[in-house]
Nucleic acid binder design. Structure first.
Ligand SMILES: [Zn+2]
Ligand SMILES: [Zn+2]
Ligand SMILES: [Zn+2]
Ligand SMILES: [Zn+2]
Lengths: 175, 175
DNA sequence: TATGAAAACGTAGTGATATAACCTATATAA
DNA sequence: TTATATAGGTTATATCACTACGTTTTCATA
């Protein structure tokens, strides 16, 4: 019973990890942690999801959904945008990835311990890097602000664009 | 010397204020303030810009650029998106409007005194209203966070989605 | 091991947001 | 007036995100 022609690629290309260089040690460790988290949550870190997550771990800067699709393309076969968005939705739900609303781009939460109520993401206009930053004082002040306004928070978008320490006094960055 | 056909509408429809109801007293005052500010800045609050600003002042909720274009349409003639975006860019530059990155929508800064270094926008999922909120403690904590990270801020995106006081204990809002 | 239900993914099309490129019109001042 | 800068018109396109629906895989249960 032959497969239909239109659907034959289901696990053909997606099974290969694009032309990925071997993941760095740090990335590999992070992926292992992600596996553990997913197993603990009773959800599946499938090939596609792991591939997208690995790309985010490997990148020094936030990636757009279409950028991810291009990065992970192999042999003139590219992930459909919806596929990337579905993977991103999953990763965000599991707390493994984060969306930057001010950039329409996505990052892993690798350097984000997730322990804080309020994490601000510092986005460098020069080199593109994003660093999470948090403090008890910041979280407390925001919490006070919200309770004083009698506002019940659901989702916080805290992003600051500017220049990181390495990119100051230049006017540009990205040497 | 007849005009060319293709360009005859330059100030024809844009001069009319759509089918706008008369602006409320509060809106009219805000518009007067905006005029003053623009004159002081040496910039021009043109008809288009004033019309867009008036729509933002009159709205209880953030408006998208295309939504603004529809609102301000008159007689089957709608502003081109680029026209709205240009007006919004101007208003934002002058501190009269604000973009909500998490919603791709725009609000006036009518209820935003602009005196604070850091203003968080509280966006209600229920009724759609947006209230700015700020405090010295919040601004200070964020400032500390940034200087500790040696990060030079350019633009801050501080938005919290959730439920305002009137919309809590419902699960919905918008009665 | 069969099989049914849920989850994941493929494919095509569309919706929603934002800007580029180029030209015309208006305002302001020399 | 005439030059220059600013503003706006028009068309097309770029960019980001999702709907709808069918197919495949997985996993628990019979
Ligand atoms: Zn930098
Ligand atoms: Zn440099
Ligand atoms: Zn509300
Ligand atoms: Zn209710």
């Amino acid at each position: 019973m032959p497969h239909t022609v239109s659907y034959k690629n289901y696990e053909h290309h997606t099974g290969t990890r694009a032309q990925a260089m071997a993941p760095s040690k740090e990335t590999a460790q992070a992926l292992a942690r992600a596996e553990t988290i997913c197993r603990a949550h009773g959800v599946r870190l499938t090939t596609i999801r792991r591939t997208v997550l690995e790309a985010l771990y490997s990148s020094q800067k936030p990636l757009g959904a279409y950028e991810l699709a291009d990065l992970l393309a192999s042999n003139a076969r590219r992930m459909a945008p919806i596929t990337v968005y579905r993977a991103l939705d999953f990763l965000i739900e599991q707390g493994l990835a984060h969306r930057l609303a001010s950039r329409n781009a996505y990052i892993s939460t690798l350097h984000d311990d997730g322990s804080q109520e309020a994490t601000a993401y510092l986005i460098c206009d020069g080199c593109g890097t994003v660093e999470p930053a948090s403090s008890a004082a910041f979280a407390g002040a925001l919490s006070d602000l919200l309770s004083r306004a009698d506002f019940e928070p659901r989702a916080k978008v805290l992003e600051v664009a500017g220049h990181c320490s390495r990119c100051q006094g230049h006017g540009h960055g990205r040497h």
